[in-house]
Design a protein around this nucleic acid. Structure first.
Lengths: 138, 138
DNA sequence: TGATTATCCTATTAAATCTATAGGATTTAA
DNA sequence: TTAAATCCTATAGATTTAATAGGATAATCA
């Protein structure tokens, strides 16, 4: 139940981009340097974020990455689901990645299911009420 | 951020034990059968729970495991910390397992830190307000 | 047009963690 | 004394995560 480095780095990169005033693409190297992240690893993370509609990019000299939405329009639910995967800690309580447990005959009677349902709801409330804009100055 | 099978099975075993009326030790085999768990794997989990003060045990014929506290006196915070480890998703927001991030110059200005602080608090509230007794009949 | 810069993309390696099993030692009851 | 059960350590196997490698593609600018 640790946050992956992928998610950690992705969040830092998004926040860094959101905090920029400059109206130009920011290069991977700059983000990596500023946030102490392996450049190659960050590269693959930014690629994921671009493919999932969070970032735009520009190739070649003067190229880089930039947000394609306003920070306040990017809820943490969306970011977490792309970078980290399901918000739920077990698939049987996942909204977007639901899977039945093969060992469990009846979900409604499963102690783990019901506990994790509460945990999921509480995490969801945080993520739904937090946008990238909220992360910038805290 | 998935719940480990260890925790899942441990919670099921604890709940099963808590639901018993019988005033006698319950054998690993019975729990494993009832909850569809590998007996050997469950054995190592119950050992952990015993060593951490949740269970008592009796060896030999008629032996097995039993709770040594009332279910309502076993908060999920304690169970989760033993089985799953830190409740926090990053060490820098952990109450019981705190560690500084080596890449982060100032925690208070770290977006990840502050987001994960909120997530931890919300999970903590659930775990603190739920005891083993609450898991039995839901 | 050619050199440089930067992203794009896939594959793969290395490390860590999780899951499960093996196999015998110890204790207890009958 | 035998059978039943937990105790205990080590380790194998599987999965996931983290990081790297290396070239392809596209854009800029002289």
């Amino acid at each position: 139940m640790m946050l992956s480095k992928k998610t950690k780095y992705g969040l830092k990169a998004l926040t860094f981009l959101a905090a920029q005033d400059r109206n130009e693409p920011i290069q991977i190297a700059e983000i990596a340097n500023h946030e102490n992240i392996s450049q190659k690893f960050l590269e693959s993370i930014l690629l994921t974020l671009r493919r999932n509609g969070f970032l735009g990019s520009k190739k070649g000299k003067g190229g880089g990455y930039y947000l394609i939405k306003e920070p306040q329009e990017i809820p943490m639910t969306a970011v977490m689901r792309i970078l980290e995967g399901p918000i739920a800690m077990v698939p049987c309580v996942s909204l977007n990645f639901y899977e039945k447990c093969d060992d469990c005959p009846d979900e409604n009677l499963c102690a783990v299911h019901n506990l994790m349902l509460k945990v999921r709801d509480s995490a969801l409330e945080v993520y739904r009420n937090t946008t990238l804009a909220d992360l910038i100055y805290q």
